[in-house]
């Protein structure tokens, strides 16, 4: 099947800065695809190239198999939800949503009907005649979503759409966005720097770093089998084991990742079952998170983090500086590519 979106060898230079460096990517129709990365990693540039707000320096952008490189945004069948919502302040909610049909020459009654229909979808039909300035952040977000959906695009681009909302609202909107995407069956390309958001919502995630794609995978694969130290650290904050410690534990010069929840914490004199790797260290800090706590343990030059369920940790409360033994199954060490 032809991918809904395809980037082929795309680079974007701003002066001497490579915002995107030879990126190739294929996104299937109906997929919820996240572009994840820290700020300045190129994920938003990538989105803007798909929308047509910006053009690649080299490479091609294709939508549904058709080369759209150089095609202006108003001739592309994609729509965008902007980070700052970009609602037009001189128009009411319903006029904002009806903007797409209006510039396409749809009559006044018909476009109002279309707009109300989409506002119904985002549960805002009751506020149709308000001005954007009278809405809360969450409501503005929904209007922006409705406005982008009214043209019935095959692809919806979302640029950190929940970035300005508070935590509770954000979680609510995550569920709702996912539901809307599944109901409409359209492709979502979702830019975020929040790995939790990417993991919980997306079918697949592309991790960006310095204008390049580090790894494209399902959330589960990304988490279980990160390919590089960067992905391991950025997605779910893994421990990276390298150098002397890696040599001592595995006898190899490779770099490994291990998830904090895979590490068991024991007393320094407790026996370790066969088949497990272990090392001794000093407890430096314990961060309490309610259901869990994170234990930072210094092992030689490295500080490893272990996550313990609070219920299990309650029995033993060692003092800072206490000697501890960290142990984990050999299989939970994930070998990484060097970079």
């Amino acid at each position: 099947m032809t991918p809904a979106i395809e980037l082929a060898g795309v680079s974007r230079l701003f002066g001497a800065v490579r915002a995107l460096d030879d990126v190739s990517l294929a996104i299937a129709g109906g997929e919820f695809f996240a572009l994840l990365g820290p700020s300045g990693s190129g994920k938003t540039t990538c989105l803007r190239l798909i929308a047509g707000f910006d053009q690649p320096t080299t490479g091609r952008v294709m939508l549904h198999g058709e080369d759209v490189t150089g095609v202006p945004p108003f001739q592309r069948s994609v729509n965008t939800v902007f980070q700052d919502y970009a609602l037009f302040p001189h128009m009411s909610v319903v006029e904002n949503v009806a903007y797409g049909p209006m510039v396409r020459g749809v009559g006044a009654d018909e476009r109002r009907r279309l707009a109300l229909e989409v506002l119904e979808l985002v549960q805002l039909a009751a506020l149709a005649d308000r001005a954007p300035s009278q809405l809360s952040g969450g409501q503005k977000q929904r209007v922006a979503l409705a406005r982008a959906l009214v043209n019935r695009p095959q692809v919806l681009l979302l640029d950190e759409p929940l970035g300005a909302l508070d935590l509770r609202l954000r979680e609510e909107m995550q569920i709702e966005l996912k539901a809307i995407q599944q109901r409409l069956g359209i492709t979502f390309v979702y830019v975020t720097h929040d790995q939790g958001e990417a993991l919980s919502m997306a079918d697949r995630v592309a991790v960006f770093r310095d204008g390049r794609i580090e790894q494209v995978d399902t959330p589960r694969e990304l988490y279980v089998r990160p390919r590089t130290a960067f992905v391991a650290r950025f997605v779910g904050s893994a421990n990276v084991i390298e150098g002397a410690l890696a040599r001592r534990l595995t006898g190899s010069d490779r770099v490994f990742a291990i998830r904090p929840e895979m590490i068991e914490v024991r007393g320094s004199d407790e026996p370790v079952p066969g088949g497990m790797l272990s090392c001794e260290g000093t407890l430096e800090e314990v961060h309490y998170h309610g259901a869990t706590s994170r234990w930072h343990v210094r092992v030689g030059e490295a500080v490893l983090t272990a996550v313990r369920a609070e219920a299990a940790a309650a029995a033993v409360i060692p003092a800072h500086g206490a000697r501890l033994r960290l142990a984990w199954a050999r299989e939970s060490l994930v070998p990484l590519e060097e970079r």
Binding site: N79, A86, V103, A148
Partner: peptide, 15 residues
């Protein structure tokens, strides 16, 4: 005027 207003308009099909 934020540049995103112009982009939003173009994005929705306005030349």
């Amino acid at each position: 005027i934020p540049p995103s207003w112009v982009e939003a308009s173009m994005d929705l099909g306005a030349d």
